[in-house]
Design a protein around this nucleic acid. Structure first.
Lengths: 119, 119
DNA sequence: CGGCATCCTGTGTGATACTG
DNA sequence: CAGTATCACACAGGATGCCG
């Protein structure tokens, strides 16, 4: 950890913004967090609701599991069942999710009003 | 715009989460928003504070300007001066920023407690 | 069903050099 | 100072096929 300190990546675990950015960098992280905020979901459910590839979803979930945001519960049944839910620190993300939702909706209104000039 | 409707990208402007994700997808978007939330900044200031390349910063700012999040004011002086600030819809992002900061800090505490098992 | 391995590609990001 | 232009590259993310 020498040169990394120069670039923002080295601020992971120090600056809250960099940290959050790293955690949510995945294209789907926010969507997944939102889905899980609605309750425990099975793998297939997530895949259907978000319309994401198996491989990609698996990768994202593994990542978020490693980060401690998501809990993975495996039921050794036939056919297999795996359920995902938010961990405590994952639950703490809910306010962020809520404010993102608010702002996202405001922004959607904003572009619908044609308040900006591109396209 | 046909196949894109199938994938989440087509939800831009519909789903608030997808919309927000698209807007903030840049590695630096949140950092820049944070800097600008502290007040108007010159290009060079941003570059110094965030430690980002000129090219990358320019790209990001242009993008955010197009999205209507950032305002760019050019002063035709010598040497040139360009100042960046938040637009109204950009200001609306502040609550999100605040909640991200809160959560980011919680998460930083979380990993410092060694509450999770990797590395 | 849930997942992994593999391959492949787009693009986001960075380094560098040049311009007004 | 504030860009633009170009090149290079790593990596996220999609497609496909196979496995327990």
């Amino acid at each position: 950890m020498k040169k990394e300190e120069a670039r923002a990546k080295g601020l992971f675990g120090k600056c809250p913004y960099v940290t959050a950015q790293q955690l949510l960098k995945g294209k789907w992280a926010i969507l997944i967090m939102h889905e899980l905020s609605l309750g425990t979901k099975r793998f297939k459910e997530l895949q259907r609701n978000i319309d994401i590839t198996q491989a990609t979803l698996t990768t994202q979930l593994r990542y978020m599991e490693e980060e401690g945001l998501v809990h993975r519960e495996v039921y050794p049944e036939v056919p297999p069942r795996v359920e995902y839910s938010l961990t405590p620190i994952g639950e703490e993300f809910l306010p962020v999710l809520k404010s993102i939702e608010n702002w996202g909706n405001k922004y959607i209104d904003f572009i619908k009003q044609g308040s900006y000039g591109h396209a």
